[in-house]
Amino acid sequence: MIGRLMTMTAHAGRGGELAAVLLRVARRLQGFPGCEIYLISQDAADSDTVHVTEVWRDDASARAALAAPSLADGPAPADVLALLSTAPRRMDLAVLGGVGLPVDDQP
């Protein structure tokens, strides 16, 4: 499994809008093959900072979600980018396991 931690900072006062758009993305990913976790969190100390925690079965699943026509009628990447005051920060992870993940995929 692979993971990603994304940190996005909205223009001042627009963190709620950013979180709402990302929650719409999360709803569209519900049941998408290979998407194990797509969690949206707002920073408790800075409401304009939103984090996305992703876990995918593999990199191919994550790429497929970005290219899926079934997700095309949801929020576009441009909708997210328009709300950001800075470029998003991304950290790639090798997921080892944990609560909420399929047991058969954990070491």
Rank of each mutant, 00 (worst) to 15 (best):
A19Q: 05
H51W: 05
D105T: 14
L101M: 13
L22Y: 04
L29M: 09
M8E: 00
W56C: 08
G13C: 02
V95Q: 10
V25E: 09
L5F: 07
I2N: 08
V95W: 03
G100C: 12
D92P: 02
A67T: 11
G97K: 10
H51V: 01
P102W: 14
S85H: 04
L101I: 12
G3Y: 04
P33T: 15
D58V: 08
G15W: 02
A76M: 08
D73K: 05
E17V: 02
A10D: 02
R90E: 09
I40S: 07
F32R: 12
T53C: 05
C35T: 13
R57V: 10
M1T: 09
L71G: 06
V21C: 05
R24F: 07
T7I: 02
T9Q: 03
L22R: 07
P33A: 14
P107K: 15
L5P: 01
S41A: 15
L29V: 11
D43Y: 00
I37G: 09
Q106A: 15
A72F: 02
L23M: 14
L5W: 03
G34H: 10
R63W: 12
D73M: 03
A82G: 00
P75N: 05
R28N: 13
R89K: 05
G16L: 04
V55G: 10
A60R: 15
M91Q: 11
V99P: 07
A72I: 04
I40A: 05
A62T: 08
L29D: 08
M8W: 01
R57I: 08
D79L: 03
L96Q: 14
P69M: 06
V95I: 13
A87L: 05
L101Y: 12
I40E: 09
R89C: 00
S70Y: 07
E54K: 06
D92N: 08
P77K: 02
G98I: 11
A62W: 08
D48N: 00
S70A: 11
L83Q: 04
S70N: 09
R89G: 01
P102Q: 15
D105N: 11
H11E: 05
V80H: 04
V55Q: 12
R89Q: 02
T9L: 02
L66Q: 14
H51D: 02
A62L: 11
W56R: 10
R28C: 13
L71E: 08
L18N: 00
G16N: 06
M91V: 11
G3M: 10
L18E: 00
P77F: 03
T49I: 02
A19H: 03
I2K: 09
A62P: 03
C35G: 11
I2A: 06
T86Q: 04
H51M: 05
G97F: 06
L93E: 07
G13L: 00
A62G: 12
V50P: 00
A65R: 08
D73R: 10
A87F: 02
L84S: 00
D59W: 13
M1W: 10
M6F: 09
V52Q: 04
G98H: 10
A68K: 06
V21S: 04
A60Q: 13
C35K: 13
L96E: 13
D59C: 10
T86P: 01
A65W: 03
V80L: 01
I2Y: 08
G98A: 13
L66P: 04
A10I: 00
A82P: 00
M8D: 01
V95P: 03
R14C: 01
